[in-house]
């Protein structure tokens, strides 16, 4: 029986519960944060409170723009809770895709069938890409839905660009996890690599914004590439999106190359 993309189909459809759970989490976060904007971020009282906070802290949390609708959405949803949820989901899926499957002993049986190793990596990476894109699309749709009622005033094209960067940032961590898992054959190494990309990106951004002496850290932060100019407010820097998606694709290619060259399941 010939089915197109059999490995993709299995990786994508067998994990629908996980995809649905992360979608529910992201939706809950969106519905929790955004409707609060009129009474929280947009209020003069809130602005006074933020002004009272140490400047370092507001910079670290990206709360310096929280008084506008786009800034609030950028800081709370795309920059914090959504970033966290998406990164965890993507890293988990990426680490499981090859490294986790090999570690659990199941990759051996798959490879004993009529598939190539490159095909296994590419189809599973495609499943990762599609799931991340679905989650980003969901966030895009929900923010559009809440835009009026929560008085956010986000321009659709800026929101779209932010969603592309949002997906690209999560993919970078996820494909780093996939690649490290594929190189090592261990899920844990995949998780560590993916988490490192996500966490270091966030930390380098938070620290790099503190002073000019450490500004070079920003160049190392994928988080800053994506969100440095607040895309929800100012529109996406498409070059940054190209880097995030391009490096992700390169990591997938590296994973395919690595798995194709080594022994599996030893």
């Amino acid at each position: 029986m010939s089915t197109t993309l059999p490995l993709f189909r299995r990786a994508f459809f067998d994990s629908w519960r996980s995809t649905a759970a992360w979608a529910a989490g992201l939706a809950a976060a969106t519905f929790l944060y955004l409707p609060l904007y009129p009474s929280l971020g947009g209020s003069a009282q809130m602005q006074d409170m933020i002004d009272a906070l140490p400047a370092e802290m507001t910079k670290a949390l990206n709360y310096d723009q929280i008084a506008t609708g786009p800034g609030y959405t950028q800081a709370t949803l795309f920059g914090l809770i959504g970033f966290l949820l998406m990164t965890i989901a993507s890293v988990g899926w990426g680490a499981a895709a090859v490294g986790g499957d090999e570690e659990s002993g199941q990759l051996e049986l798959t490879l004993a069938h009529g598939v190539t190793r490159v095909q296994v990596v590419l189809e599973r990476a495609l499943s990762l890409f599609l799931r991340v894109v679905l989650l980003a699309a969901l966030v895009f749709v929900l923010v559009r839905l809440l835009n009026d009622s929560a008085q956010l005033n986000i321009r659709p094209e800026n929101l779209f660009g932010a969603a592309v960067l949002f997906a690209g940032l999560a993919l970078l961590s996820g494909t780093a996890a996939l690649c490290a898992g594929a190189v090592s054959g261990r899920r844990t190494y995949g998780l560590a690599a993916g988490a490192a990309v996500g966490v270091l990106g966030y930390v380098f951004n938070a620290v790099g914004r503190q002073s000019e002496d450490v500004e070079w850290l920003l160049d190392l932060s994928a988080y800053h590439w994506a969100y440095g100019n607040s895309p929800v407010a100012n529109g996406a820097e498409w070059a940054a999106a190209g880097w995030l998606w391009g490096i992700s694709a390169a990591l997938v290619a590296g994973a395919a190359f690595a798995v194709n060259r080594r022994d599996v399941g030893t």
């Binding site: 029986m1 010939s2 089915t3 059999p6 490995l7 189909r9 049986l109 798959t110 069938h113 009529g114």
Partner: peptide, 8 residues
């Protein structure tokens, strides 16, 4: 699934 990736 295994049927899809093995012989007929």
């Amino acid at each position: 699934h295994y049927q899809a990736i093995s012989g007929p």
